[in-house]
Amino acid sequence: MLIRRPTDLTYSDVSPKSVYTQRREFLRAMGLAGVAAFAGASAWRIGMPFDEVHATSKLDVATKSPFSTTEKETPYNDVTHYNNFYEFGTDKTAPAKNAQKFRTSPWSVSVEGEVKKPRKFSMDEILKIAPLEERIYRHRCVEAWSIVVPWIGFPFIELAKLVEPTPIAQFVAFESFFDPGQMPQAKYSGLEYPYVEGLRLDEAMNPLTLIGVGMYGETLPNQDGAPVRMVVPWKYGYKSIKSIVKIRFVAKQPPTTWNRMAPREYGFYSNVNPNVDHPRWSQAKERRLGEIFKRPTLMFNGYGDQVASLYNGMDLKKSY
């Protein structure tokens, strides 16, 4: 069902309108030939409603977090209409369209492997594992664009405490939901499914690592990984796996989807690192969505204080 976004959270709450209009002004000023023919139509857009997104509902957030950045949040409309979610197509605008009918309820997440208390969590149970926090994080895609998102979730460590990993567990393996019937575009994406990701146990237990259940004060829209996803802000976006159905604590480093697809281009660690280029493009700079000029990319996406110590003694050029 398509509904309008509830009016209690207006667009101007999440981003000043000027960001949006600046970009439009810029595009208009670019003077592309042919644009002039449509000059009369430009007044049209002003006051038009923002794009519709799939039904989401409000989430009550207990606490704000000291880990939040004070940077300007990316407009909700951009974060919901510019997505990489290859199960629903490889174009940036495809997930917003193709994920509309994705069934995310009922949902459960199986937590298993090297744990004392393996367990299946229903979505209701997940929402009650720990008080929900809002965390405004930078999110850096491997494609050199970035956004600032007010996530809602709780630290992964809270879930780990419930299942009690054994000393054998050294890594955590994650698996996304996959159903070719609901995701017919997946077969053209060139990736193997279900999508899998992994973290070293100490990375997963870092206080920055979140289990995300919402954003912008609401549950996650389908195209952003509903109903439950990971949020690992110092790593490239594809490490923050979406629509999780399985979490396994394991002894060995698990396979990860992009690494399997092109090992030279996507490493297991995939820490944001301006000094290690992707073989085909530079990672030194990024374009924050809504901005024209690129900005320098920060080591560990600016989260070095919290995570640099995890990699002491490692050569990050080799362990990319």
């Binding site: 595009l27 049209w44 407009p75 409309n77």
Partner: peptide, 10 residues
């Protein structure tokens, strides 16, 4: 472009 349909990364 005039209708703001160039996605978030025009």
């Amino acid at each position: 472009a005039l209708h703001g349909e160039l996605t978030a990364n025009p």
